[in-house]
Amino acid sequence: MKTDDLIEMLSIGPDVGLARTPAGRNALLVLGALLLSAVVMAATLGLRPQLAQAVVLPAFWLKVVFSVALAAAGWLAARRLSAPGSRTGELPLLVGAPVMLIWVAGAITLADAAPELRVGLFWGSTWRYCAVLITLMSLPVFAATLSIVRQLAPTRLRLAGAAAGLASGGAAAVVYCLHCPEMSAAFVGFWYLLGILGPTAIGALIGPHVLAW
């Protein structure tokens, strides 16, 4: 926290609400951006039919947990990369572990399926636009996350931008789960990941330009 922010918070007193602190403002900014993505998704794509039935299935929660894990790993990476001196050695493991686990689950799914079903389990029926939609829905959260990272002290700008994109892509994938009918781990491990890597790549590309002090 910056010294001026600390002085301001202390001068306001203990009754200050969450939104009056820098951390509170940042949380509200991200939540507002995530809500915007959800509203746009619901208005343009709509919620998945029989969503209530889907949420009791383990396959649904597998893709939600995968998306949340990457969003959390990206956010932690962005925070660490924006604080000089923070430990970053474990970040590749935190990012890679969810990917490896979903790939293992996808491989098991394909191995257990009848040969004639494997193509459908990988390609699904929405592969043409799944990754694109996740990338597009990440943009509000991406903008909010980049704004927060700019307030900190990132030194490895390309990596910090990529981490912000990863966090945003994971968050958008969680929202997309409410619409997407696909349930195969093989589909999620490729097409969802591709959509999450979209803002990650964009973040790496623009990080040195938008995050420079």
Score class of each variant (00 low, 15 high):
L117M: 15
L110C: 01
S147N: 08
G124Y: 13
L94R: 03
P98V: 12
P140D: 11
S138G: 15
Y129R: 07
S147R: 11
L91M: 07
T88W: 10
V132S: 05
R118I: 00
T155E: 05
L91V: 08
S82M: 00
L146W: 00
P115N: 13
T145P: 03
R128G: 13
T135E: 06
V104Y: 13
T145L: 04
A144D: 04
P154L: 01
E90F: 14
T109L: 08
L91Q: 06
A111W: 10
L81E: 00
A105L: 05
V95K: 07
S138Q: 06
E116N: 15
V149I: 15
V95S: 14
V149T: 06
L93P: 00
G124R: 06
T88L: 11
P98E: 04
V141H: 09
W123F: 14
I108P: 03
M137R: 04
R87N: 06
A153D: 14
R150V: 01
R128C: 05
L101F: 09
P140R: 01
A78P: 02
V141G: 11
S138P: 02
L101Y: 06
P84S: 03
S82V: 09
S86I: 02
G85L: 00
G124W: 10
L146D: 04
L152N: 10
A153G: 09
L110S: 00
W123R: 14
T109K: 11
M137A: 13
V132D: 07
D112S: 15
M100E: 08
M100Q: 12
G89V: 10
V119L: 14
A105Y: 01
E90D: 15
L76Y: 12
V141A: 15
T109F: 11
G106F: 02
A97R: 02
V119I: 11
